[in-house]
Design a protein around this nucleic acid. Structure first.
Lengths: 191, 191
DNA sequence: AGATATTAGCCTATACTTAGACAATATCTT
DNA sequence: AAGATATTGTCTAAGTATAGGCTAATATCT
């Protein structure tokens, strides 16, 4: 990344970032990542290559930016007023729904199973990180402290991403209710 | 219009124009033209007001630019290799289809019937102009010269836009076949 | 294997967009 | 009808994108 996302961005910079994000997202539903060229991306969003390189080191850089943006955005849909155990289920369902809403993207991620299953590891890493952050803040002011909050958040985010991975890759036809029940059972030692 | 569309435009300028066009088009399906503010437009396409005024005098200016763009684009779909009498029917059908594909826009144009029926006159003027151009070039090298080509093109474009207006406003449920037949009958003095 | 074409990165002057402030109207509120 | 709020249209310095040209590295073709 050539620019600092934490600094203030002009409207134009935000527009440009969004355009590249959308272009990459759409291309990922059409082609394998390795088949996508910087030219493809620039053509799709109607920006010149020079602008691409003003923002990103290369297409992997853009991809990772996209993943982190997606991860943040999916989980931002959570109503952050209530902080209870349901949050984990809600997070899980938001994630599952995202992939159900974008089947072409998921198919493409699955397809790259050889040298490029790193697409999924890459994305799931960002998802886990965001879930972790969310859960950490969600529990940081709770009373039950038999276990450090950091560890708890880590345990939960591992659980939810593991569950997601199992559903998407091993059991893609599972329905929401059943999946939720499995998750609840795991959570409550209900084996 | 603050810029000269006939001159060469940079990629960025073309992107900006497109963004404003799309924003106006989408807003026209939601709100009446008079209720749309420059701020609405800029918000919709994520450009600052300053940029709007770099390109357009005001929102009417943008509207007219949009109409002329739409007119050109609808009629550009015509295969321009063959030049025969069918062209008129094809032009008519392209126009009808455009409005069938954009019912919300049409509804909004119809709604503004008081002080603002000029929305339709404005748009139909551009449509007629483009149809005229097309027909003029279509017949300019034909042999039959009992009537000047300019007059013929004018006669035809008046006919096709009149027919369109009648279909859209007086007889919105008419089917394509019937409308085509009426047009053919008018064309061949088959009253 | 050698020729040809595509792609990746980078560079620069020029042209463009931007933020934000401004006065002048218009529109809403009570 | 008066005061608050929203909108219009203009301006400028500073920030940003653009064209298009360049080399090196990879593909792709024959």
């Amino acid at each position: 990344m050539k620019i600092d996302l934490s600094k203030h961005l002009t409207l134009g910079a935000r527009r440009t970032l969004k355009a590249f994000r959308v272009a990459m997202f759409e291309l990922l539903s059409e082609k394998e990542f390795d088949k996508i060229t910087v030219n493809d991306i620039c053509e799709a969003c109607e920006y010149p290559r020079a602008t691409f390189y003003n923002y990103f080191d290369d297409k992997l850089d853009l991809l990772e930016y996209l993943w982190s943006h997606i991860a943040k955005n999916i989980l931002n849909q959570l109503p952050n007023d209530e902080k209870n155990d349901d949050n984990l289920i809600k997070i899980f369902n938001l994630l599952v729904n995202f992939f159900h809403d974008n089947p072409a993207l998921l198919a493409n991620i699955k397809k790259n199973d050889g040298a490029n299953s790193h697409l999924w590891h890459n994305l799931s890493g960002y998802l886990k990180h965001e879930a972790n952050q969310l859960l950490y803040h969600s529990y940081s002011d709770s009373k039950e402290q038999n276990v450090p909050v950091e560890l708890l958040a880590r345990f939960y985010s591992d659980l939810v991403i593991g569950m997601l991975e199992w559903c998407l890759f091993e059991n893609p036809t599972i329905d929401e209710k059943t999946a939720d029940n499995y998750l609840i059972n795991l959570l409550h030692n209900n084996f």
